[in-house]
Computed example of a mutant assay.
Amino acid sequence: MEQEAIKVFVGCDPNNCDLEQMMVLDYSIRKHTKHDVEIVWMQLSHDENSAWFSNPKQQQGWHTEKWATPFSGFRWAIPEYCGFKGRAIYMDADVLVLCDLAELWNHPMAAGTMVVGKGGGQVARLCTCVWDCQEAKNHLPPLAQMKQDPDAHQKMMQVLQKNPQWVHYYQDTYNCVDGEGLDIKQIKILHYSDMGTQFSHAYSLPRLRDAGMSHWFDGDILPHPRQDLSALFDEYYQAAVDAGYRPENYAVRPFGVFPKASQVGYTGNGVTRQQQEEGSSKSWLSRSWKKMKSGLKGSKDDFSLDR
């Protein structure tokens, strides 16, 4: 396994909003990974022969109207894309790799499990995961079926809720969501997941404004509470540029308008917004009830799904 190229599938926007994320992710992977890496950028396409084909006007291909991001449902297509052979890593574009990806690529996987992800019990996060493509064939619906179902993404996460034996959970920090209070040295893969506080906004939003475009995220933009992580992203951005990487090298012909769930009123996650909540007018009773609910093991309300 160590001799074959590590296959990495990355979900990203089709209208060039995520160029900075793509550049920094690409650079960070190759900076730390000694093995050959093949990256597939998963972006909506007008090409009928593409696995990511969508034609909203004709209701063909992927139906994206209930997705929180431009790529939410793509992760389920990876095993069939790979011909149900070998392994494949999936990750969102808003990720900074700080370790050799071979660690994750070679992660043990128990018999009968189709994917390695973050979580356990009532939590399943597949925003950085490893697929056993052959095993996944036994559990995933056909790609053509998923494309036509706007609810396919949430349905599949609910299937995993009912069948936790299909997921092998890693215990390391391969999907560290917005720092989680850890020192940078403890983080293997940083996922700056809160769409409102993403470090890349400092670069992408001015670029998009100058081009007369807008970002796909339509919620409020806020500073990230971890300045050390923000500085880390800036460091990797500059290092990528110094190494010859450029955001424009990742640009594609824009896909254009596509239906997507609005993120107006988006509240982020408990890691990035905790400080704001504690300083807000939310009552002690409200915060206590929220904590009590999160402690109820086995509760459906406690099951965490990817966006």
Rank of each mutant, 00 (worst) to 15 (best):
K34T: 14
L285Y: 09
E80R: 01
Q238G: 09
E38L: 01
T173W: 03
E65V: 13
T128Y: 10
W52N: 02
P223I: 10
G11Q: 07
V8S: 01
R30T: 00
Q21C: 12
D301R: 14
G270L: 06
E48G: 06
E2M: 15
F233I: 06
S200P: 07
A251I: 07
A77S: 10
Y169L: 06
Q158I: 07
A136Q: 07
M91P: 07
I184E: 04
N49S: 09
F255E: 07
Q276A: 13
C99Q: 09
S280Y: 11
L208S: 05
H191T: 07
G244T: 02
L126E: 00
H32R: 15
D18P: 03
R226Q: 15
S304K: 15
G11L: 06
R253I: 13
S200H: 08
C133D: 02
S288R: 10
H46C: 10
S54H: 01
D228Q: 08
Q171T: 14
Q165V: 09
F255A: 02
Q43I: 02
H46L: 12
T173Y: 09
I187N: 09
K66A: 02
H215D: 11
P225C: 11
A111R: 12
I6D: 04
R246K: 15
Q58M: 12
N138L: 13
L25G: 01
Y236A: 06
E103Q: 14
G86C: 00
S204A: 04
R273M: 13
S288F: 01
T69V: 08
I221Y: 15
I187C: 03
N55I: 01
I221K: 07
D132R: 05
M23F: 12
S294R: 13
Q275N: 15
W284E: 05
D210H: 14
K34E: 12
Y236F: 14
W166F: 00
P225T: 13
H215Y: 08
P79Y: 06
L44I: 03
M146E: 08
G119T: 10
V159Y: 13
V241W: 10
H32K: 15
L190C: 02
A110G: 11
H107M: 11
G181K: 00
S214N: 10
N16G: 04
G179Y: 05
K66L: 15
I184C: 03
G181P: 08
V37T: 14
I89R: 03
F233K: 11
Y192R: 03
S193E: 13
K31G: 10
F233C: 01
W131N: 01
G121P: 13
L44N: 05
C129T: 09
D149C: 00
Y237C: 04
H139D: 02
M23S: 06
